[in-house]
Amino acid sequence: EPLWIRPDAPSRCTWQLGRPASESPHHHTAPAKSPKILPDILKKIGDTPMVRINKIGKKFGLKCELLAKCEFFNAGGSVKDRISLRMIEDAERDGTLKPGDTIIEPTSGNTGIGLALAAAVRGYRCIIVMPEKMSSEKVDVLRALGAEIVRTPTNARFDSPESHVGVAWRLKNEIPNSHILDQYRNASNPLAHYDTTADEILQQCDGKLDMLVASVGTGGTITGIARKLKEKCPGCRIIGVDPEGSILAEPEELNQTEQTTYEVEGIGYDFIPTVLDRTVVDKWFKSNDEEAFTFARMLIAQEGLLCGGSAGSTVAVAVKAAQELQEGQRCVVILPDSVRNYMTKFLSDRWMLQKGFLKEEDLTEKKPWWWHLRVQELGLSAPLTVLPTITCGHTIEILREKGFDQAPVVDEAGVILGMVTLGNMLSSLLAGKVQPSDQVGKVIYKQFKQIRLTDTLGRLSHILEMDHFALVVHEQIQYHSTGKSSQRQMVFGVVTAIDLLNFVAAQERDQK
């Protein structure tokens, strides 16, 4: 057995438009009618409502009807409940999964919650491996369901041993009777949507819809739904939504950006999952974080739909894509998950301010006199920076000697690579993860907040409520011999709460 199987392995699926269902090699399930009293909570997966979006479509000038398939009504709160249950049931049916076995899954959280929910009911041990950027709410729900959680670096490539995929496979090879159901490759993922989600949409719309818009992560949702719609409703256009920084969209030119990270969760990847059939997507749109969270908040405030950030991405694209539809036509959007997962993220004004998705003037509360002053007023001194090749031991000596707790790590040209902190280095040394002679590049981390000289002290204040420091950066445009230009970030300084307090105190003292 291989040590790991690539999540982007070539698909062996034989589905073709027009091929009889009787030739399918898979076990198919028909939607079942729910009894009045459910035998367990797993029976509350599927049969989610279709809700008309009344205000947002009109606000953006849509002539067509805009409908939302509300997947956050599933038992675990997301569309991923469907595939989690289906993968477990299919693994039980073919004898792969037996009582007492362990389920391991690399996930952005929602599939993990679905699997942990099913594992709690069915009696399996469950280990979820997820990147650090995923919300604390997801972690809390997983723990409450009895799952064990392993976190991995957000910026690790999918084929790196440190990625959530790599760590999951390492655990599988170490733990007896453990299984990775593997949402990236498992046919049960798109089949769950082909058999149930798509049929529900067709039934709820009486077979009449002209466009379907869905955000894409593993691709199982859009693949399964689109294949069924292509068979039953061939005139329906399928629109895929991919965040900026991901590479799922086609044509490839759409993916060209210097951005590699994004805040919206559960969609987009740096590889093409095996289950994603991009041939059934008629057109791709890219979405960005700001519009995703703005539209998610709009869905909550104006439509009462308590959905997550990827739902915002989907609707932001839908109001663009559906401009081509006329009166009497219908566009369906998939709202994948609930706001429950993001209470401390985009639902929080403070978080939105820190990330730059909300401006101070958007909030009406009274601010102190210094709130709208610029960061450049602080008069920061030149920063202490270190090269990635310097040793951890030497870096600790320098920081202690100069009285700093942290320093930016830059390359020879001064471009920011990340940050090192005294606390992080000492804990890594004590844990045996690094040696004093190791290069400081081994303990770089990139989960820090950046701020510009033109940003306000109010925004800085919000950042420092949650973080010990902020890195002050400025952009530099560099022209190359080819005539092309590129933008790079340079370090201007490091600012802490002490710097802000000293500035405010000094100004008030001078005024007296």
Rank of each mutant, 00 (worst) to 15 (best):
I238E: 00
I238P: 00
I238W: 00
G240E: 05
V241R: 00
V241M: 07
V241C: 05
D242L: 01
D242G: 00
E244S: 09
G245T: 04
G245R: 06
I247V: 15
I247A: 09
L248Y: 01
E250V: 14
E250C: 09
E250W: 05
P251Y: 06
E252F: 06
E253V: 15
E253F: 08
E253Y: 06
L254P: 03
T257H: 05
T257Q: 10
Q259S: 04
Q259M: 11
T260P: 04
T260H: 09
T260Q: 13
T260M: 11
T260V: 12
T261P: 12
T261A: 04
T261W: 09
Y262S: 00
E263I: 05
V264N: 04
E265G: 01
E265D: 05
G266V: 00
G266R: 01
G266M: 00
I267W: 03
G268D: 00
Y269H: 08
Y269D: 01
D270W: 00
F271V: 03
F271N: 00
I272C: 11
D277S: 08
D277G: 10
T279W: 13
T279G: 11
V281N: 03
D282W: 06
W284S: 00
W284Q: 01
F285Y: 14
K286I: 01
K286N: 05
N288W: 13
E290W: 10
E291L: 12
E291N: 15
A292T: 13
A292I: 06
A292K: 06
F293M: 04
F293R: 00
F293L: 02
T294C: 06
F295V: 12
F295E: 10
M298I: 15
L299W: 02
I300G: 00
A301M: 12
A301D: 15
Q302E: 06
E303R: 05
G304M: 00
L305T: 00
L306N: 03
C307V: 03
G308S: 00
G308C: 00
A311Q: 05
G312I: 02
V315Y: 08
V315L: 13
V315F: 10
A316T: 05
A316V: 06
V317P: 08
V317K: 07
V317T: 09
V317R: 07
A318H: 01
A318M: 01
A318K: 01
A318Q: 01
K320N: 14
A321Q: 12
E324S: 10
L325K: 02
Q326A: 11
Q326I: 10
Q326E: 13
E327S: 04
G328D: 14
Q329A: 14
R330M: 11
R330Y: 07
C331M: 06
C331L: 09
V333K: 01
V333G: 02
I334P: 00
L335E: 01
D337N: 04
D337T: 04
S338A: 08
V339E: 06
V339W: 06
R340S: 01
N341F: 00
N341M: 02
N341G: 03
M343E: 02
T344C: 07
K345C: 03
F346W: 01
F346T: 03
L347M: 07
L347D: 00
S348K: 12
R350S: 12
R350L: 15
R350W: 15
R350D: 10
W351Q: 01
W351T: 00
M352A: 03
L353P: 02
Q354Y: 04
K355R: 15
L358R: 10
L358H: 09
L358P: 09
E360I: 13
E360H: 03
E361N: 10
E365T: 13
E365D: 15
K366R: 04
K366C: 14
P368S: 12
W369A: 11
W371M: 09
W371S: 09
W371P: 09
H372D: 13
L373I: 12
R374K: 14
Q376I: 04
Q376K: 10
E377D: 10
L378T: 01
L378D: 01
L378N: 01
L378E: 05
G379M: 10
L380H: 08
S381H: 13
S381Y: 12
S381D: 13
S381K: 12
A382M: 11
P383T: 10
P383M: 08
L384W: 06
T385I: 15
L387M: 14
L387F: 15
P388E: 07
T389Y: 11
I390F: 05
I390Y: 10
T391S: 14
C392P: 09
C392W: 15
C392V: 15
G393H: 10
G393A: 15
H394K: 10
I396L: 15
I398K: 11
I398G: 13
E401T: 11
K402E: 12
K402H: 13
D405S: 07
Q406R: 05
A407M: 03
P408G: 08
V410C: 12
V410K: 06
D411S: 12
E412P: 13
A413R: 13
A413Y: 12
I416Q: 05
I416F: 07
I416Y: 11
L417W: 08
G418A: 09
M419D: 12
M419A: 15
M419C: 13
V420L: 15
T421C: 05
L422S: 11
G423N: 11
S427V: 07
S427Y: 14
L429V: 13
L429W: 08
L430G: 02
A431S: 04
V434I: 13
V434S: 02
Q435L: 15
Q435K: 15
S437N: 12
D438F: 15
D438S: 13
Q439D: 03
Q439I: 12
Q439N: 15
V440N: 12
V440Q: 00
G441V: 08
G441A: 15
G441Y: 13
G441H: 08
K442C: 15
V443T: 15
V443Y: 14
K446V: 15
K446Q: 11
K449G: 06
Q450H: 09
I451V: 13
R452C: 14
L453N: 11
L453V: 15
T456V: 15
G458F: 08
G458W: 07
S461V: 14
H462A: 14
I463F: 14
L464Y: 06
L464V: 14
E465A: 08
D467W: 13
D467R: 08
H468N: 15
H468T: 09
F469E: 14
A470F: 06
L471W: 12
L471E: 05
V472F: 15
V473D: 10
H474C: 11
E475W: 12
Q476I: 15
I477S: 06
I477H: 10
Q478I: 11
Q478F: 14
Y479R: 12
Y479A: 14
H480L: 09
T482S: 15
G483P: 12
K484V: 15
S486T: 13
Q487L: 13
Q487M: 15
R488H: 14
R488D: 05
Q489R: 02
Q489M: 09
M490K: 11
M490G: 14
M490V: 14
M490W: 11
V491K: 08
V491T: 04
F492S: 15
V494T: 06
V494W: 01
V495G: 15
T496K: 08
T496S: 15
A497W: 09
A497H: 07
A497T: 14
I498Y: 14
L501A: 05
L501I: 09
N502E: 13
F503P: 13
V504D: 10
A505H: 06
A506R: 09
Q507H: 15
E508K: 15
R509F: 14
D510F: 15
D510V: 15
